[in-house]
Simulated scan of single mutants.
Amino acid sequence: MGLLSLLFGWPLAPVKGVIRLGELIQEQVEREMRDPAAVRRRLEAIEEARRSGRISEEEEARAVEEVLRTMTGTRRG
């Protein structure tokens, strides 16, 4: 049984590797998005954009809400 599964599973090994790599990248991105230092930098950038007049107050509120939603892992719905 082991030889047969090895023989038939071998051609799928690259596909399984790519899938696992994608999962690892997704996990790392999610970890970084919830990192308090990264969240603080994003909030500071939004605040600076508002102070300099590049975004409106409503856009600032939406951006802050999106950052906080991302940080907590909740989805819009």
Rank of each mutant, 00 (worst) to 15 (best):
M1W: 05
G2F: 09
G2L: 15
G2E: 07
G2T: 06
L3E: 07
L3S: 11
L3G: 08
L3D: 09
L6D: 10
L7K: 08
L7Q: 11
L7M: 12
F8H: 01
F8C: 05
P11L: 02
L12P: 06
A13K: 10
A13V: 13
G17D: 08
G17A: 05
I19F: 13
I19L: 08
I19H: 13
R20S: 15
L21V: 09
E23S: 13
I25T: 10
Q26G: 11
Q26C: 11
Q26I: 07
E27Q: 15
Q28I: 09
Q28D: 04
Q28P: 03
Q28F: 04
V29F: 02
E30C: 06
R31F: 14
E32Q: 14
R34H: 01
R34V: 01
D35P: 02
P36L: 02
P36D: 04
V39K: 01
V39T: 06
R40N: 11
L43S: 04
E44A: 12
A45P: 00
I46E: 00
I46G: 00
E47T: 06
S52Y: 04
S52L: 14
G53M: 00
I55V: 03
E57N: 04
E59N: 04
E59F: 05
E60K: 10
A63E: 07
V64Y: 01
V64L: 00
V64H: 03
E65W: 09
E65Q: 11
L68Q: 14
R69K: 03
R69A: 05
R69N: 03
R69P: 01
M71Y: 15
T72Y: 09
T74K: 14
T74F: 05
R76Y: 08
